[in-house]
Design a protein around this nucleic acid. Structure first.
Lengths: 151, 151
DNA sequence: CCTTCTGAGTTCCTTCAGGAGACTCAAGAA
DNA sequence: TTCTTGAGTCTCCTGAAGGAACTCAGAAGG
């Protein structure tokens, strides 16, 4: 086995999630589909990914229920569309984007801005506690074993 | 070139972030260091990663300012510690965890729970607009070109 | 009716990253 | 002086990623 199957290492939601979108290119494919680049040829041209790997990644993302293939012609032509499961994964991309904007964008500033529908403002995501609404970051929590802790 | 350098593709904070922690194992190393597994031998044993790859990943994460090497002995023995930059990356892991808990944990439930210091409750992260405080997810935003959009 | 075009893959070959395990090296312990 | 331990190196092998050419089905064009 060349690449370890992470989710077999331990009961860990991070490892499991990496088995779904941890392979090279997968997050960028998700980003593109989210941004409206949704056909095979468009994705291949936009990313410069090899056709073989693009095929593999798309199949995997469809198998995992992240993307759906929607035919747009009577010929075998498809558009890839985010499922609900896939759309919720984009949350992670938004947090990645925020981190990259802060730490890697440099003087040029963020390459992409988000306008929030609810308030109409250019904004960024903020992590809050689902319970009390206060900020919730790495140093604001303790970790405890959960019900699914054993394999 | 076997693996594409994503950040050269386009001005994209996701691609740039992937160049920092997108390689296989890197997020799991981060998780372990965050959880207190901080020495080479511990990481190797806990993850089952090959020593060669662990060395490469740790060097890269140190180079990128995600981890710092702290000597804990007069012999060359080190502990790896998250920098501020690295700690903020853990936000992303918390969001990955939440997604994995929801979509992949199944009946067993989440393997790990987080207790929020501020309120003392077991809770999860929630994405909010930094501007208005309302929920902010993939379908709640429009994308616009930002100042760093050109390469 | 025959040829051309197009989107969506497949196939094939080469190169290089990941896995496994043995080896090294420095310093303290026995 | 030898043994042990943590933290890496080194070597060999396998298999994934890159690149480019090939296939295939249906539509369009003459």
């Amino acid at each position: 086995m060349q690449r370890t199957n992470f989710s077999e290492l331990a009961a860990c939601s991070i490892a499991r999630t990496l088995d779904v979108i941890g392979e090279p290119w997968s997050p960028l494919i998700l980003r593109d589909v989210w941004a409206g680049v949704s056909r095979f040829e468009q994705l291949q041209a936009d990313l410069g990914i090899s056709r073989k790997v693009l095929t593999e990644r798309l199949n995997h993302l469809v198998d995992e229920g992240i993307l759906e293939r929607h035919p747009y012609d009577r010929r075998p032509r498809y558009e890839y569309v985010l499922t609900e499961k896939g759309t919720e994964l984009v949350d992670m991309l938004m947090v990645m984007t925020r981190w990259g904007d802060k730490w890697l964008a440099g003087k040029a500033g963020p390459p992409v801005l988000y306008r929030h529908h609810a308030c109409g403002e250019i904004s960024t995501v903020d992590l809050r506690c689902a319970h009390c609404g206060e900020p919730m970051h790495a140093n604001d929590v303790d970790m405890l074993a959960g019900p699914g802790a054993t394999r």
